[in-house]
């Protein structure tokens, strides 16, 4: 039987993010929360293999209690079990503290019900760090492949997985022993439209809540703010660069505007270098 674990995070839909013009703060109100898209695709792949091989999918998330929405969404997509690790003391975690809590949790689940593949998203779209997946792999001592676009082979008997990972240069085909950890690109699988009975089951599903008081014992010094070596020193809006000159082609005519532009580029020594290169 196949057992996949998927780490899912709830994120604000950053395509909708706004900054309050007065306070410079992030406006969270009305910004829809979604399952991190990369995680959703990773989950879709885990479920695809579960359907093919038989077995189950467990999802884990660390975050505030309202993350149950995202766990329910995972159940809707076909996950069987959801664990939400949630405690006030976890707040303010950076990627190091997050990877600690996730690794401990996944390890505990693994000991009770051995996991074959741990899936992560390539990165979370709110922080864009791509650090948590590798961090958990290091802490658990698992082999890792990042930026996976395809699982070619998943052989539970020979305990191996063959994955394709895309880099700037090429696609690497990598073989790893199981259990292994993958961080996934969106290409890995399409998100299916869940059947109605799955949706209804998910709406009634209450995930397990793990906190500082149990069932696991977390080290206070390694969670939340205390476990985070980095702190935000200050926040600001990006500085405005100095604007250059504007030429209105509707006033001076297109040919003249271009002529003046090229003259400026010449003066800056740009066009000659460039044209030199083009010859």
């Amino acid at each position: 039987m196949f057992h996949a674990l998927v780490a899912v995070k709830q994120v604000p839909d950053t395509t909708n993010i706004r900054i309050d013009p007065e306070t410079g703060n992030l406006v969270r109100e009305g910004v829809p929360a979604i399952m991190n898209p990369y995680d959703a695709h990773a989950l879709a792949e885990a479920i695809r293999w579960k359907r093919q091989l038989g077995g189950k999918v467990t999802v884990v998330s660390m975050g505030p209690p309202n993350f149950v929405v995202t766990i329910r969404e995972a159940i809707e997509m076909g996950a069987d079990r959801g664990v939400l690790v949630s405690d006030r003391k976890f707040a303010g975690a950076d990627t190091l503290a997050t990877s600690y809590v996730l690794a401990e949790t996944i390890q505990a689940i693994h000991e009770e019900d051995p996991i074959d593949v741990v899936f992560f998203g390539k990165q979370a779209i709110d922080g864009d760090t791509a650090q948590v997946g590798p961090g958990v792999a290091v802490r658990m001592g698992l082999p890792i492949v990042t930026y996976v676009v395809k699982i070619r082979e998943l052989d539970l008997e020979r305990r191996r997985i063959v994955a394709e990972r895309k880099t700037e240069r090429w696609t690497e085909v990598i073989e790893l022993p199981l259990p292994a950890l993958l961080t996934c690109e969106k290409e890995i699988a399409e998100i299916p439209f869940a059947p109605l009975p799955d949706l209804i089951r998910s709406l009634r599903y209450d995930p397990e809540m793990w906190t500082m008081s149990g069932p696991l014992e977390f080290d206070k010094g390694q969670v939340g703010v205390r476990g985070s070596p980095t702190i935000v020193f200050k926040m600001g809006t990006p500085p405005l660069p100095e604007a250059g000159e504007k030429i209105d082609a509707r006033e001076v005519g297109v040919a003249e505007a271009v002529k003046q532009t090229f003259a400026k580029a010449d003066a800056a020594g740009i066009l000659d270098t460039v044209l030199g290169g083009a010859r």
């Binding site: 439209f193 869940a194 059947p195 109605l196 009975p197």
Partner: peptide, 8 residues
């Protein structure tokens, strides 16, 4: 409904 197995 528009979902698979979507009768209610």
């Amino acid at each position: 409904t528009d979902r698979p197995d979507g009768e209610l």
